[in-house]
């Protein structure tokens, strides 16, 4: 008997197409590209602000242009997906015990959405103030 174990090749760049759960995972990871790009947009806005009114108004015009609006919409969708996936896994990363028993994951996730709602209302209110 001779041993000659066969090593099946791994699809380095297309492996995630094999299962729906891998595609969902990659969609979650890709949110980072939008979060990254939008934070850069905010930073560009701050630099433009420091450069004076002309530069800043040009920046605002770009955000309000069609391509700027499409970019914001895509980022909004991915940002909400990021929120959903992040809250969904918190009971795993930070389980809470009370009286020796685990608190149900749905309660932890629900509490996160509740805080999300309050934080969003506060942000919307403060900006308009």
């Amino acid at each position: 008997m001779s041993r000659r174990p066969y090593i099946r090749p791994v699809q380095r760049s297309t492996w995630w197409l094999a299962q729906p759960r891998y595609i969902r995972y990659m969609a979650r990871e890709v949110t980072s590209a939008f979060l990254c790009a939008y934070s850069l947009l905010i930073i560009v806005g701050l630099v433009r602000l420091a450069q004076g009114p002309l530069a800043y108004d040009a920046f605002l015009a770009a955000v309000y242009s069609t391509s700027g609006q499409v970019f914001s919409l895509l980022t909004l969708i991915f940002a909400i997906y990021h929120t959903y996936t992040w809250f969904q896994v918190t009971p795993k990363a930070m389980p809470i015990r009370k009286g020796g028993k685990l608190i149900a994951g749905s309660i932890i996730v629900g509490a996160h959405w509740f805080v999300f709602l309050i934080a969003s209302v506060i942000i919307l209110y403060l900006v308009g103030m």
Binding site: R21, K92, A93, M94
Partner: peptide
């Protein structure tokens, strides 16, 4: 944190949770 390990575990061990807790 793909989480596939916990989804296929026949004994509900939840290795993904264990690893995230260890990371923290």
């Amino acid at each position: 944190f793909v989480g596939a390990c916990s989804e296929v575990c026949p004994k509900s061990v939840d290795p993904a949770a264990a690893i995230q807790q260890t990371k923290i």
